[in-house]
Design a protein around this nucleic acid. Structure first.
Lengths: 253, 253
DNA sequence: AAAAATTCATTTGTCTGACATTTAAAAGTC
DNA sequence: GACTTTTAAATGTCAGACAAATGAATTTTT
């Protein structure tokens, strides 16, 4: 583990990178204890605060965890699916919100990926997954549900569908795509008829998954894609015209 | 932006979370300058090193960037697709390497996602994407190519396929799945016949994409999936028996 | 007056040294 | 032997200082 004394980058960034490289290369293995902060500052010839900044960078990425007290220190963290999942959701959400990704683009990506899971889910779903899907469909049909709650249930339904594929890597990859869509979906106001149609399609998907009929699942998902796209387009248009009106009121000609 | 004085968590973690929340909620917008470190330490009633540790955590996630000098400071960063892409690859790679994800699982996830892109790519690919694919296929056919170089070219080929869908969100999501597989793929030793078969299938994919024939593309991809899976299984088995032999030598009975 | 050089204030980057807090192990006590 | 106390090691936090970079204001030069 060495740093380049001629680099212009921050020392803490260099040190963080050096340790990160050591972890990726396998030089440091899971649960191994890093040298203490004092030892690291000796090794890299920097002060302890600088080492600490480097360690905080790694902690922010869940690459290490720290423990106080005797026999404490920084330990290489096993990146769990949960941690990776959380990071993936945060990154995707920010990416979508900061880059003015269109509803269409995000929606297309989400459903394309989801349709990739459907055949596997039809093959391997457990009764548990099916039960979750049915429960969420039931919830979505309840009157008096807020739009936020409806969207949350929608996410839960689709998570169950994805998890049904029984592939944790796939579930993790999809987490970002599905959850990051939620803020965009929350912009939509669902009418009773919209919800009815969505619940109907969800029902078709659940039926298809239950019968292990991947073709039917794909068909229903493709209809759901089209319908969601339609709703989104309408919502975005309404939103745009509202903004238009407001700025007209603010700046009357 | 407030922190809970009764929380047991590190102050720097709390402060980082508070600022992160402010960014996600839109309270702090892109390119906005955060208060200076001194102002933040006044605001949160902590010392400057603590604030700095918090800022480094955010910098590690590309949420902020810092600039020295007068009119410098920490600025909310627009999370670019490149940044998100890089994070995604790192996370996926570590996840796969640290969690003993089986070759099968990773492979299945990767190809499932990739097949989701193929129809869109067939629809929208530009001549550029096609040219890249052809170029990589040509490279893969060259004799004397190392296994690493072959894998790298394989990744480049598949990236072109994915990018052909013209959906940046999809490209970003797939980046992790495809690139994180590379270390696993590098464990495989490709025979000349293996390569020949892969190049042939790549050719079929490129042909299908060129002719905007999504069905043919899907077929070729599904064959490639099966073939890769077969190679992987063989490689893993060989690896396991090597390990077996080695431990027998080390611990003869 | 315009351009170049200089100064200056501000901000992040880094260092030194210290103290607080937590924690597990060692030492002591019954 | 079981329990309590002490101790040492490690991270968490703080205060104050200086270095380095940088943009803006100021001065000097042309």
């Amino acid at each position: 583990m060495k740093i380049d004394p001629n680099s212009s980058a921050d020392l803490s960034a260099q040190i963080a990178q050096a340790i990160k490289d050591a972890i990726i290369s396998g030089e440091l293995i899971v649960d191994e204890r890093l040298p203490s902060e004092t030892e690291l500052s000796d090794h890299f010839q920097v002060s302890r605060p600088t080492v600490r900044e480097a360690l905080k960078r790694l902690a922010a990425q869940s690459l290490i965890r720290t423990q106080r007290g005797a026999s404490g220190g920084a330990f290489v963290n096993r990146l769990s699916f949960e941690d990776a999942y959380a990071q993936q959701v945060t990154t995707s959400t920010l990416l979508l919100s900061m880059n003015e990704v269109s509803f269409d683009t995000a929606c297309e990506a989400r459903y394309a990926l989801e349709r990739a899971c459907a055949p596997l889910s039809a093959l391997r779903r457990s009764p548990d997954h099916l039960a979750t899907m049915r429960a969420e469909i039931f919830r979505q049909g309840q009157p008096g549900l807020t739009d936020e709650a409806f969207c949350a249930s929608d996410v839960a339904f689709h998570r169950a569908l994805v998890d049904g594929a029984g592939n944790p890597v796939l579930s993790y990859q999809l987490a970002g795509a599905v959850e990051a869509m939620q803020p965009l979906m929350n912009m939509i106001t669902f009418t009773a008829r919209d919800r009815e149609r969505i619940v109907e399609l969800h029902g078709q998907i659940a039926d298809a998954i239950e019968q292990r009929n991947s073709q039917a699942a794909d068909l229903a998902l493709s209809e759901l894609t089209a319908y969601t796209l339609e709703l989104g387009t309408k919502a975005m248009a309404a939103r745009a015209s509202r903004h238009q009106n407001r700025s007209n009121v603010e700046n009357p000609k």
